[in-house]
């Protein structure tokens, strides 16, 4: 287990409403080693994104624990979790989450600058990453001037900018047509392979899930199968 990068033990998430308790996630457990790729699949509302949020330390479980690089996220406060995220985690979102007032290059520079890199260096690295995703001609374009596929490629470049140990991707093709989606996925997996990153992918596309070496199927918050 010493090679395990991400371990989840009996993760549950319960939300209390005025009428009742909602069990969003029930006793989910998983283990991921460096370089592994995990697809979390399931229908809408099955708890995929909640699980992703818990694994990434964006939220805390009602019970259970998450260990990232040996550190128990449930024992860390929000600021400590943020520090861990800064060191280890990258994200790709369904809705891209690019800052509309920043250019493509500036969006990619953001995590580098947050990591304390000087602006010149960050600029060069961002340009290089954007070139890697085929957007060398779009450095100074704003998100609204880019197509959905192009925006997601910027998001990919941003996600890999800080060379994360784990990349969390939440429905990365959800907002894209199938052809563009396929190209994005190819790019994602090739970047992942190059960097040796551990990948946690939320998707409802079987085709996409099959490219991962582990699968976790959720139904109404419960783990149905793990391969």
């Amino acid at each position: 287990m010493s090679d395990s990068l991400l371990i989840a033990r009996n993760l549950s998430k319960v939300v209390r409403t005025e009428e009742a308790e909602l069990h969003i996630l029930n006793n989910v457990s998983l283990t991921l080693a460096r370089g592994d790729s995990l697809a979390i699949v399931g229908s809408s509302g099955s708890g995929k994104s909640t699980l992703l949020g818990l694994l990434a330390g964006l939220d805390l479980p009602s019970s259970g624990s998450v260990l990232m690089a040996g550190k128990n996220l449930t024992e860390l406060n929000e600021d400590q979790r943020a520090e861990l995220r800064a060191q280890m985690v990258g994200f790709v979102f369904q809705s891209f989450q690019l800052l509309p007032s920043l250019t493509a290059q500036e969006n990619v520079m953001l995590p580098l600058e947050l990591a304390g890199l000087g602006s010149k260096e960050a600029e060069q690295q961002a340009a290089h990453l954007l070139e890697r995703v085929g957007l060398q001609a779009r450095l100074r374009h704003y998100p609204r001037q880019l197509s959905g596929g192009e925006q997601q490629r910027v998001a990919l470049a941003r996600a890999f900018a800080s060379t994360p140990a784990i990349l969390f991707a939440d429905e990365p093709t959800g907002n894209l047509d199938s052809q563009t989606g396929a190209r994005i996925i190819d790019l994602l997996f090739s970047l992942n392979a190059e960097a040796g990153t551990t990948l946690v992918l939320v998707t409802h596309e079987q085709r996409l899930a099959e490219r991962c070496n582990q699968h976790l199927h959720l139904e109404a918050g419960s783990q149905v199968a793990e391969v």
């Binding site: 964006l58 943020a82 800064a86 994200f91 989450q97 800080s162």
Partner: peptide, 9 residues
């Protein structure tokens, strides 16, 4: 997003 990228509160 910035918090997600690791900046504390």
């Amino acid at each position: 997003l910035i918090r997600c990228l690791g900046l504390n509160r």
